[in-house]
Design a protein around this nucleic acid. Structure first.
Lengths: 158, 158
DNA sequence: CCATTATAGTTACAAATGAAACTAATTGCG
DNA sequence: CGCAATTAGTTTCATTTGTAACTATAATGG
C-alpha cells in the first residue's frame, strides 16, 4: 500500500463525496445503458426522450429538455434521429407554430413497453440490496443534498 | 400539472434512481468545478490528476488513470497540458523505461495547497445538511449500491 | 537467447458535443 | 399597427472525446 497518511481531513479522492457520487452515477448509468442499448440501440438522450414522452405525451422539445435535464441542441438532434427511425411523431402546435408536439409512434410505444419494465426491474434490483429504511434514507438524503446545491448555486449567481 | 398517473410502478424519470443519481452527481461536479476552474483553469481530468499526485507522488500515468477512474488517453493528454503549464514534472522509471514517474512541481503544489482545502470545504458544506447518522448511512448506501453493481457487471461479463 | 506476447504511453482519425449564430414565429409595448 | 425583444428549434463550426492503431520497452516461454 502506498497510501501515505490516514488523515481523515486530507483530500482522498476515493472517499471524496463528489467523486464517489460521480462513480456511482456513471456505473449505474452504464449498467442501465447496457440494458436499453443492447436491443434497441438507443443513446442516453434518446432513452430519456422516450421515457419522458411515454409519460408526458404531446410535450414540446423544450419541455422534454427541461424534464430530462437535457440540452436543447441534444434534444433537437436526438429527435431528428428518432423521427428518421420512426420512433417518434412530430406535429406543430396549432396555437404556436414554432412549438413541436412530440409523441411516441406505434413503434416507439412498442420499444417503450419493452424497455420501461426492464428499467424498473433494474432499479428494483439495484435497490434490492437496501432495506426499506435505507431506501427511504437514500431518497431523503438525495433531496437534502440537492437542496444544499440549490443554495450553493443561488449564492453563486444571485 | 400534466402528470397523468400517480402510479408508483410507472417509469417516472424524476423519481428514477439512475436519473436522480446522475443529476445529483452532475450538479455536485459542476459546483466543485466552479471552485477549482475559476482560479486555475483546470479541467475535471486535470483536477483529478492533481488530487491523486498530491496524495500519491511518483505515480505512473497508468496508476493515475486507475485511481482517478480516468481513460489512459485522457490522462496522456491532460499530463501533456499540465507539463506545458509547469504544473507537473515527469521522469521515466529506472527499472522500466516505459513507465512515467509523475509528480507535482512547485507550482503544482501551490495550486494543490489552494484547491484541496477548498474542495474539502465544499464537501463539508454539502454534508452540512446531513446529521451524523445520515452521513454514515450515505456512505454505507453508496457502498451497498456499488456492491450490487459489481454483481451486475460480473454477471454480464462472466 | 530469440520470437512472441503484453504493457505504458502517444498519436491519428472519426464521432460526439457545445457555443454561438441563425431562422421563423410570437409577444410586448410605444 | 409596427418595430424591438423573446422564444422554439435548427444549423454551423470549433473543440472534445473515444476507438483503434502505433511506438517503444519489458516479460515470457520454447
Amino acid at each position: 500500500m502506498d497510501e501515505l497518511v490516514a488523515d481523515r481531513d486530507a483530500l482522498h479522492l476515493e472517499r471524496f463525496l463528489p467523486f464517489r457520487l460521480t462513480q456511482l452515477a456513471n456505473r449505474t448509468s452504464d449498467a442501465l445503458f447496457g440494458i436499453y442499448s443492447r436491443i434497441h440501440e438507443l443513446t442516453v438522450t434518446e432513452w430519456r426522450i422516450l421515457a419522458i414522452l411515454g409519460r408526458f405525451p404531446d410535450s414540446s422539445a423544450r419541455r422534454v429538455a427541461e424534464r430530462g435535464a437535457l440540452d436543447k441542441v441534444a434534444v433537437s438532434r436526438a429527435v431528428a434521429r428518432m423521427l428518421e427511425r420512426g420512433i417518434l411523431t412530430r406535429d406543430m402546435a396549432e396555437d404556436d407554430r414554432r412549438r413541436s408536439v412530440l409523441n411516441l409512434s406505434d413503434t416507439g410505444w412498442e420499444i417503450y413497453a419493452e424497455i420501461a419494465p426492464a428499467a424498473l426491474a433494474f432499479e428494483a434490483e439495484l435497490l434490492g440490496g437496501l432495506d426499506p429504511s435505507e431506501r427511504k434514507a437514500l431518497v431523503s438524503i438525495i433531496e437534502k443534498l440537492s437542496a444544499r446545491l440549490d443554495r450553493f448555486d443561488s449564492r453563486r449567481s444571485g
